[in-house]
Amino acid sequence: MNASMMKGVAVGGIAMVVLGAGAVGGYKTLAAPKQAQVVAVKDVFETVSTPQEQCEKVAVQHRAPVRDEKRVAGSVVGAIAGGLLGSTVGGGNGKTLATVAGAAAGGYAGNQVQKGMQERDVVTTTERRCHTVQLKSQRLVGYDVTYRLGSQEGVVRTAVRPGATLPVKDGVVVTADSAPASS
Rank of each mutant, 00 (worst) to 15 (best):
A73M: 07
T50A: 06
V9Y: 11
G94S: 08
A159D: 15
P167M: 14
Q134H: 03
E127W: 03
T146P: 05
G116Q: 14
H131P: 01
T146I: 00
Q138E: 11
V17Q: 04
Y27K: 10
A10R: 09
S178G: 09
G154A: 06
G142Y: 10
Q52C: 11
Q152W: 11
G91C: 06
G107Q: 08
A176S: 09
A32S: 03
Q61M: 01
T29F: 06
G8E: 12
Q134A: 05
R157V: 07
V100W: 08
R148Y: 03
E69N: 08
V39R: 03
V156E: 13
V76E: 04
R67P: 07
R128C: 03
G25P: 08
G163Q: 10
Q35R: 00
V173K: 09
M117Y: 05
D170R: 01
E153D: 03
V122A: 13
Y147P: 01
K169D: 05
A181W: 15
Q152L: 12
L140K: 09
V133K: 11
T132K: 02
A59N: 14
V100K: 01
H62Y: 06
T99M: 05
V72A: 06
A164G: 06
N93Y: 15
V18C: 05
K7Q: 04
Y147M: 02
M16E: 12
E56A: 00
R128G: 01
V44N: 13
G26K: 02
V122C: 11
V58C: 04
N111H: 00
A64H: 12
Q52H: 13
A164C: 02
I80Q: 02
T88D: 15
L19T: 12
C55M: 07
R67Y: 11
K115V: 01
R120N: 09
A179K: 14
V113R: 03
A3L: 07
R157W: 04
V77P: 11
Q114D: 09
A10T: 13
Q35D: 12
R129G: 00
V48K: 07
R161V: 00
V17Y: 04
Q112F: 09
V48N: 02
G116S: 15
A15V: 11
G107H: 06
T124V: 12
A164M: 10
A40F: 00
V72N: 06
A101N: 04
L149A: 05
Q112V: 10
E119L: 10
V141Q: 09
G106C: 01
S182E: 03
G106R: 00
R129P: 02
A32N: 03
Q54A: 05
A103K: 00
L135A: 08
